[in-house]
Write a protein that binds this DNA or RNA. Sequence first.
DNA 1: GTCTATAGCCCGATAGAC
DNA 2: GTCTATCGGGCTATAGAC
Lengths: 202, 202
Amino acid sequence: MVLTESAVKKRTINPQEKINKVILASRKLFVEKGYGGVSIPDIVQASGVSTGAIYSHFKDKETLAKRIHAHTVDEFNDLLQSRLTGEESVQEVLKVFTYLVCELVEENPILMKYMLFMQHGGAVAGLSPICETDPFRFLQQHLRRGIEEGVVRRGQDFMVAGLSYTGVTLRAAELRMDAVLDQPLTEIRDILAENGWNAIKA
Amino acid sequence: MVLTESAVKKRTINPQEKINKVILASRKLFVEKGYGGVSIPDIVQASGVSTGAIYSHFKDKETLAKRIHAHTVDEFNDLLQSRLTGEESVQEVLKVFTYLVCELVEENPILMKYMLFMQHGGAVAGLSPICETDPFRFLQQHLRRGIEEGVVRRGQDFMVAGLSYTGVTLRAAELRMDAVLDQPLTEIRDILAENGWNAIKA
DNA sequence: GTCTATAGCCCGATAGAC
DNA sequence: GTCTATCGGGCTATAGAC
């Protein structure tokens, strides 16, 4: 294949673009086939980036997996924070979370599948559990506030309250992505938010 | 190594015992390292059964995975059914489910991890999602009855009611098995059952 | 930085003795 | 049925030209 000079230049001056391509292509493959089921040649083919280029940016396959993990958690957290002003009630914050998850399931299922399923493949050691990352810690702090304010039922740890609320939304996401639910989650997001809130409200 | 005649005999006349050893050892490894991260030599070492014997009972690695899947779903379903008389109210059936999950998380975490996490590795195609297996269909039928009887809130599909209840319990199980919760689930099973029921009750 | 080519290793599955 | 030994293949990671 013959490349124009500018095309060559473009590829040369923008390594970040390649890194992103590799991360996105690998994430898709990891979600579809599992970490151990994806080879470097698979990633080369799916991303259009050569073996050599991949190894020049990522020490090894495991390092690549860790970068994907960090990238994905950041992406989810940025989306969540961008929808919040900081003025919401506890119930409103939780509803924003549910709405976000419902929309992502339909619009960016790879991202959501990664968030829900990848950690548990057990293939890569040392990944922090999703539920210990910023977005989930953030929700937990709001639940703690809710218990203090008395709007969330007392007698339960704020961790338990958090998992009870998010369990409803996240289980719906799981079932939708396993194609067990044929209704888009965007159509039942209010029911999910209501059920979750009923689970924990005072 | 020298084997006594009886030891040789024992191994020869009981192939089923070897099959079970392979299934249990493989399930543990699959849960810990992911399907693609486990090699046949790994299974040979963990089970004490030789390569040849494994291939004489299982066509290939994928067939082994499917047998593990069926074995595990049956095991869970048997445990659930053995705790039910058929006379329970909808709420009582759900509570039995929650109690069973909470106990299994503490007593047989490999079984529970498999139920919750393995399907989503994506490594083996053609496994029926756990939520479409007998024990979960069984719960759904009870929820349908609950809606008809008016004890479960109307305006929601029975699938949504089912996922809302089980979401609370199963998310607790996930977090406990990821070592995010340090309290045994057996100590909070009543809170989980209560939260789940509050999520869906009329 | 990026490419191709390949070294070196380990895997899944089989063959053949017992 | 069960064993050990091994084949062919595909893997991760590197080497060396550009």
